[in-house]
Amino acid sequence: MSTATRNPEAAWRRRDRLWGMAFVAPQALGMAVFTLLPFAVAFYLAFTEWNGFGTPQWVGLANFADQIGDPLLRRSILNTLVLALVTVPIGLGLSMVLATMLNSIRRRGLYLLLLFAPVVTSQVAIALIWQQMLRPDGAFSSLIARVLGVVPPDWLANPYTALAAVCLVTIWASVGLNTVIFMAGLQNISPSVLEAAQIDGAGVLTRFLRIVLPMVSPVIFYQSVVAFISSLQTFDLVFVLVKDAGPDNGTRTIVYHIYDEGFQKSDFGVSSAASIILLALTLLITAIQFGAQKRFVHYEE
């Protein structure tokens, strides 16, 4: 008598594992080919000098030393951090306010559709539309001139306003997704908890600060981590919206710097080193966020 006949449950579990591996295999193969393999190649190239042709020449830590002393990389890191520190708090705060308002409305389908439309729109299309709106004679500038009676600057050609314009467009494009996720978190709060607090005399602001925010803090934490990582990877919006990283490299982000070094200057070793620096910066910021979550994130026990 075979083992499968003697132990049918073991045979069933073995067959179930094989089917599970078969379903997971395409995704695992795709991750290996399009994620792990490129990462391994980039990590190797970071220690070499290579222009895309011939054999890479090993240079050790020279590329990292070159990038640490490169003022363009420092400017890129500063611009990226400013972009993240401006867009993430403002974007999440605005999304929370909108989610709270929409959560109290029954017929909110149209509002959610309008808010979510930028999320499913191509970043290139968004950049092209806002590029026209931010022109000196565009709709945005014309509105400011008509309402405030002042002549607005050329937003994308001014080194002091180009990054602010990128922040504005980034917030506008991301607020819809954050609002929908925050609404899902708000709908998990039991109405009886809020009703009990109202009966005890808690006002609207008190209920929001003492009950709503603590109960949705895990969602806020998750969205803040994702939003920071996304901000550190900003490229396509800047690439299309502002020509050549803006005046005086005012909108040059880290990913744009990686693209410029690799595909414009054909220095893939330096470009790969910059990408490893971006990875280290992302891990550092994420670690700080996970360390700080113990103070403001409240999980249900």
Rank of each mutant, 00 (worst) to 15 (best):
T3D: 11
A4D: 13
A11C: 07
R13D: 13
R15M: 01
M21D: 03
F34Y: 11
T35K: 02
F53R: 04
D66L: 14
Q67P: 03
I68R: 06
D70E: 11
I77V: 15
V82F: 15
L83I: 13
A84N: 07
L85S: 02
V86R: 00
T87Q: 08
V88A: 05
P89M: 00
P89I: 07
M96W: 09
V97M: 11
R107A: 00
R108C: 06
L110F: 14
V119K: 00
V120E: 00
V124K: 01
I126N: 07
A127E: 05
A127L: 10
I129G: 12
W130A: 04
P136S: 08
S141Y: 01
V150N: 05
A157H: 13
T161H: 02
L163Q: 07
V169S: 04
I171Y: 10
W172I: 06
S174P: 12
S174E: 07
G176E: 09
N178K: 08
T179Y: 10
G185M: 10
Q187G: 02
N188T: 03
T206D: 05
L209A: 04
V212N: 09
P218F: 12
F221I: 06
Y222L: 13
A227F: 10
Q233A: 12
V238G: 07
K243M: 05
K243E: 15
D244C: 07
G250S: 15
T251V: 10
T253C: 01
I254L: 15
Y256Q: 01
Y259R: 05
G262P: 13
K265V: 10
V270I: 14
S275I: 15
L278Q: 05
L281D: 01
T282H: 09
L284C: 11
K294W: 14
F296G: 06
H298M: 04
Y299H: 00
E301T: 09
